[in-house]
Design a binder for these strands. Structure first.
Lengths: 192, 192
DNA sequence: CGCCGAGTTGAACTGAATCAAGAAACGTGG
DNA sequence: CCACGTTTCTTGATTCAGTTCAACTCGGCG
């Protein structure tokens, strides 16, 4: 099991003492998943936080029979449906592998145990939740105030991996526009 | 100082023992504010959670010189810029009284103190933060998937106070449309 | 080699913004 | 309690951004 990237990602967020890291390794379970496979289905309760060793994920929901992409995630990023994870309500969307991916899963029970044993780990959990909240807040403000073209330029700036590795038609629904329109925006942006 | 509504609102969320409630009363400070007055300015760090005894608030930010309303709050509701409150980064928006209002303010220092002394109070804080997160999540999904007309109908259903007590042109920017367009949507909805 | 999914392009259409003018509603001072 | 000015809301005409539908290109893969 490769855990170096996870440990490095954690240390980038907040320092954790070696004993806490050791205890964390005990609760990890690895999971390999192929491109296009579903990781978590809409309607299930989310019981894990996952870390992406390699690969890419997306989550999406449905609107009028069509898939709407909510967000994309890549190697060295954490992901969970924080809402479902906490409230134990069923998830409202489906999580799928965009590429063959190698994941590390941390179950809720194990995490709660770590929270009780290590204050530093509780701090880590809080910081991850806060990042989650902040990025949700930013997305909300952006959707509220920016044009599709501005949103696409932001994406190029801040999340170039999305533009490089996610098919255009998925990015389109993520931005709330049609693939045709995104294609035209891209032409315009490239030529300018 | 009127604290009955606050206590009732708390008990609706989670039971809190009398000693913890007493301790909480000690950290409260009341504040009267007139219609149109600013409560918190953009750029300040948010140091309080507030409870609305009576009146109404809104928060808004700017886009191209125009005010964009983020959310509206009424009597018996809590409000804070959760992001700024936690990270101590400056707030990105301004909070203002929509009506003459009577507020109760809880300072962060006092709240942290209560968290340490009473486990039940920590639970309350977590639940309020979660509600905050959930409503942000829902807003995000709605802005992503619904038409302005659907958003307005949702508002009528779920937050009728907004429609009753907030001027139309403020609701328009909240929904991401112009006042003219909202006026036409309203005409259409009423006549059907 | 041929197919199929992804991306592009064009033309017609539509929902929403903009601009401009009035009509209501509202509060304030006389 | 009325008159006036200001703010809010409505309505119409025009313009524009973005969608829809349909046809076509391109690249990868069986």
């Amino acid at each position: 099991m490769h855990t170096e990237a996870l440990i490095a990602a954690i240390q980038r967020i907040t320092p954790i003492e070696p004993e806490a890291l050791d205890a964390m390794l005990d609760i990890l379970s690895p999971r390999q998943i192929n491109k296009g496979e579903v990781i978590w289905n809409s309607g299930e309760v989310c019981r894990h936080i996952l870390f992406i060793n390699s690969g890419a994920l997306r989550y999406f929901y449905y609107k009028g029979g069509k898939e709407i992409n909510g967000q994309f995630f890549f190697e060295n990023e954490f992901f969970t449906d924080y809402y479902s994870f906490i409230t134990r309500e069923p998830m409202g969307f489906t999580t799928e592998a965009l590429e063959d991916s190698s994941l590390l899963l941390m179950p809720r029970s194990g995490i709660n145990n770590l929270y009780e044993r290590f204050k530093s780990f509780e701090r880590l959990g809080r910081l991850i939740a806060e990042q989650n909240f902040i990025s949700l807040h930013n997305t909300r403000v952006d959707l509220h105030t920016k044009t599709p073209e501005e949103l696409y330029l932001d994406l190029l700036q801040n999340r170039p991996l999305v533009v490089q590795r996610v098919p255009l038609y998925m990015i389109a629904s993520y931005l709330g526009i049609t693939p045709e329109h995104l294609s035209r925006i891209r032409r315009k942006v490239v030529s300018s």
